[in-house]
């Protein structure tokens, strides 16, 4: 069991980080090259001001018409995504790892709070799953990959939660938790989890078109 843990938190973690960071850089780089090769006009229309105007409206809960139209979804999706980012980075156990592995020290979350945030992520994933199955307009456009990426994202949190509370075989759960985290990191650039990377760009482009050319709000 120790060797499994050492493998997933050692070499595999390195590979996962490499794939995440390298893959993200590669995908963004490839996107920019494609813009330059085939649609260089996009640069012409990009505007910092209107890009951030659009992004700011969409990253603030209830700041857009559609967020206001979907109050429950808005609360859930913002809570889900915030916790999803905060827990892996600021969990105390992770902060220790950050310091041990990379010598980086930063602020960390109290364990009980992190535990609550983890539950929020898991409940958020359940909400998305139920929504995907029950809402006709979502189910109609759902493919197997949508369930896969939901599983990839929720697995580290479910296993982390179980490991923290030591409800099942702790060493195994810990190993699975790290493995799930590795998989999620590595999957981000190569699945539709890449909306994490690309959505600021698509939003910025639409914001620029609406602001600069259309003189209209895109929210």
């Amino acid at each position: 069991m120790h060797s499994f843990y050492n493998f997933v938190s050692g070499p595999l973690a390195w590979i996962a980080f490499l794939l995440f960071i390298g893959g993200s850089i590669f995908r963004i780089g490839r996107m920019l090259v494609l813009v330059a090769q085939k649609e260089p006009f996009i640069f012409t229309y990009m505007s910092w001001r209107y890009s951030f105007r659009s992004i700011l409206h969409w990253i603030v809960p209830f700041a857009t018409v559609n967020w206001r139209r979907q109050p429950v979804l808005t609360v859930v999706t913002f809570a889900f995504h915030l916790c999803l980012l905060a827990v892996p980075v600021f969990l105390l156990a992770h902060a220790v790892l950050w310091e041990d592995s990379f010598g980086i020290r930063w602020w960390s979350l109290p364990d009980t709070l992190a535990d609550t945030l983890t539950v929020i992520v898991i409940l958020g994933a359940v909400f998305f799953l139920v929504r995907r199955i029950t809402r006709p307009e979502v189910r109609f456009v759902t493919s197997a990959s949508d369930y896969v990426i939901l599983a990839i994202v929720s697995a580290p949190f479910i296993t982390g939660f179980l490991a923290y509370h030591q409800w099942f075989a702790y060493p195994l759960m810990m190993g699975l938790h790290v493995l799930a985290g590795d998989i999620m990191l590595a999957a981000i650039p190569f699945t539709r989890l890449s909306h994490m990377i690309f959505s600021p760009f698509t939003r910025a482009y639409m914001g620029s078109e609406f602001g600069k050319v259309r003189h209209a709000r895109d929210w």
């Binding site: 979502v138 949508d146 690309f198």
Partner: peptide, 8 residues
């Protein structure tokens, strides 16, 4: 590739 199939 970015569309998350959310139906919004």
């Amino acid at each position: 590739e970015t569309c998350i199939h959310c139906g919004l």
